[in-house]
Amino acid sequence: MFPFSFEWIWDAGHMVFMGGLWYALTIMGLGVTYCIIKAAVDASGENDGNHH
C-alpha cells in the first residue's frame, strides 16, 4: 500500500492502481475537509449574527 512495504515495486501496475486509489481517497478527504471547515465558518458567522 505504501512504497516502504518491501513488496512494493515502482512498476506500471503499482503506479496505475495505487495512483487511482490515492487520487480517489484524496478527493474524498479534501471534499469532506472543505465541507467541515466551511460549515464551521458558516455556523460561527450565523452565531455572530444572532448575537447582534
Partner: peptide, 14 residues
Amino acid sequence: VPFFHHLAHNMHEI
C-alpha cells in the same frame, strides 16, 4: 444545530 445544518448543506453543494 447550526454546524450540522451547514455541514449538510455544504455536502449537498459538492
